[in-house]
């Protein structure tokens, strides 16, 4: 079973040289810590920076320089700032090759819900709807089950949707899965997790090949 860092580490393996990548808040942010040395990628944050760098030292903190999670950041050499319309232009215009974001629920048709729990959490969608509606490549980073132990990989989402037919890949603490032909396809098991355990934790239709390799982390 992976922890959150393990999920981030596995997703980092999906990044390709020269990609521009948008990382959401939470586990996705951690992906930046595990980029292989041999590839060059740039991180876009939708509040208006391309070339986002590490967190600042105490001396480097600049209140005018934050990421979309409102955390203080630094800018890498070659970084650029822009307004919010240009930022979402990059996203809608498909100039960003990969979006990694969290989810509360994913359905086997690629629908995703991650912004609202009616009556409980109504904070807004931020940039998530624009991101999922336009990205060519969306990887969802999340735990396989929720705090109550219920599956987050469903036949149909029960919460208000963020986007429809958009998720293609999911990395959880238990598995790597792909969505194809309105079904979840099991690609890999997390270290120490059995196919049976993954089946039991997946409510939606799950296609399991004869051989399911263990992730190499």
């Amino acid at each position: 079973m992976l922890d959150k860092h393990g999920i981030a580490k596995r997703i980092a393996q999906e990044l390709q040289d020269r990609w521009y990548v948008n990382l959401g808040i939470g586990i996705p942010t951690m992906v930046a810590n595990y980029i292989p040395d041999h590839i060059d990628v740039e991180f876009q944050s939708e509040n208006g920076i391309l070339g986002m760098g590490r967190f600042p030292t105490e001396d480097e903190v600049d209140p005018d320089l934050i990421n979309a999670g409102k955390q203080t950041i630094t800018a890498r050499p070659g970084a650029v700032y822009f307004d919010s319309a240009a930022s979402f232009g990059m996203i809608r215009g498909r100039h960003v090759q990969l979006t990694v974001l969290g989810a509360m629920e994913v359905a086997q048709n690629g629908n995703i819900a991650n912004w609202k729990i009616p009556g409980k959490m109504v904070k807004g969608m931020g940039g998530a709807m624009d991101l999922v509606a336009s990205a060519q490549n969306i990887i969802v980073a999340m735990m396989h089950t929720n705090k109550a132990g219920k599956s987050k990989l469903l036949r149909e989402c029960t919460l208000p949707l963020t986007g429809v037919n958009c998720v293609t890949k999911i990395v959880t603490n238990m598995a790597t899965l792909e969505i194809k032909d309105e079904k979840f396809h099991l690609l890999e098991r997390a270290p120490g997790v059995t196919v049976e355990e993954i089946k039991a934790a997946t409510e939606g239709d799950l296609v399991v090949p004869a051989e399911v390799p263990e992730m190499k982390i």
């Binding site: 590490r54 967190f55 600042p56 030292t57 105490e58 903190v61 209140p63 005018d64 934050i66 999670g69 409102k70 955390q71 203080t72 950041i73």
Partner: peptide, 12 residues
């Protein structure tokens, strides 16, 4: 004032 919501720093 330029208040910071999520001051996040790394060690040196």
């Amino acid at each position: 004032e330029k208040r910071i919501e999520q001051r996040t720093v790394r060690e040196s």
